[in-house]
């Protein structure tokens, strides 16, 4: 039985940069605990010496020539941005002035 505390949920939400309401925090505390309990089945398996597999079809070192290709023009790349300035994405200041 896995249980997460409310503090755990708040920590994960901060790591994931998710704003949660108090109701959401309580809900995810329950739902995540349920799912973690469910996935604990994996601890039944003896995995000593078993190599991990990150992809179904193992491929390594896919190389290509470093050639100049067409890219998206700036106006198109910026077309979906909430704010732009001088042909760039605009965000709030990160540091105090």
């Amino acid at each position: 039985m896995s249980t997460l505390s409310l503090q755990d949920v708040e920590k994960i939400a901060l790591l994931a940069r998710l704003y949660l309401t108090p109701e959401e925090k309580a809900k995810y505390q329950q739902q995540l605990s349920d799912v973690l309990t469910y996935v604990e089945q994996l601890s039944e398996l003896d995995l000593d010496g078993v190599p991990p597999q990150a992809h179904a079809v193992a491929q390594q070192n896919i190389m290509r020539e470093d050639e100049v290709n067409s890219t998206i023009p700036i106006n198109k790349a910026l077309g979906n941005a909430a704010a732009t300035a001088d042909d760039q994405f605009a965000i709030q200041a990160v540091f105090d002035e």
């Binding site: 997460l4 755990d8 949920v9 994960i12 939400a13 790591l15 994931a16 940069r17 998710l18 704003y19 949660l20 959401e24 809900k27 995810y28 739902q31 995540l32 799912v35 973690l36 965000i91 709030q92």
Partner: peptide
């Protein structure tokens, strides 16, 4: 705060999976 409030636009199940994956 802008990032966190913007990401609150994700629906409940997506938030659930992001939380699980982050954990």
């Amino acid at each position: 705060e802008t990032t966190m409030r913007t990401r609150a636009l994700f629906g409940p199940e997506v938030k659930n999976r992001i939380m699980l994956g982050t954990f």
